[in-house]
């Protein structure tokens, strides 16, 4: 079988960009997650913790952006096998988020590729890790 997507190590995935993280979507996410933490919907709660003056995006939302980037490249949710991500910093309402990925390794026998992925928000690193996909 010939793969239609490039899998050479070092190949970069198409970048996914969220131009401005929408605080209104954080409210929806808080409801979907049943997450009571007010830092996601009340800027005053963020100020009280000394974390800034804008609401903070849910970690699962930020990781969702990264997974969506990988799915777009790898062919959908069924391609994902393993995800390991570490959260490095907060994403705030209005931030521009860029998700990046690079092929670190490709095993031709198993058809599995290991990707180094990360996201930055207004230039700050916010999440980093590796994802294994079956191609």
């Amino acid at each position: 079988m010939t793969l239609e997507i490039p899998v050479a190590p070092g190949t970069e995935l198409p970048t996914l960009v969220i131009d401005a993280v929408d605080p209104e979507k954080m409210k929806l996410m808080a409801a979907l997650l049943q997450d009571p933490n007010p830092i996601h919907f009340d800027a005053e709660a963020v100020r009280a913790l000394g974390l800034g003056d804008r609401v903070i995006n849910q970690g699962p939302s930020t990781l969702s952006y990264v997974l969506t980037m990988v799915m777009g490249w790898a062919g959908g949710p069924g391609a994902l096998r393993n995800v390991h991500m570490r959260f490095l910093g907060n994403v705030f309402g209005g931030d521009r988020v860029e998700c990046h990925g690079t092929i670190a390794d490709y095993d031709q026998e198993s058809g599995r590729a290991t990707l180094d992925v990360h996201a930055i928000a207004n230039g700050r690193p916010v999440i980093r890790g590796s994802i294994v996909v079956a191609l």
Binding site: L51, P60, H84
Partner: peptide, 11 residues
């Protein structure tokens, strides 16, 4: 200020 530190998923 409880936060998510790491997340793993296996499928």
């Amino acid at each position: 200020g409880i936060m998510v530190g790491e997340q793993r998923l296996a499928f």
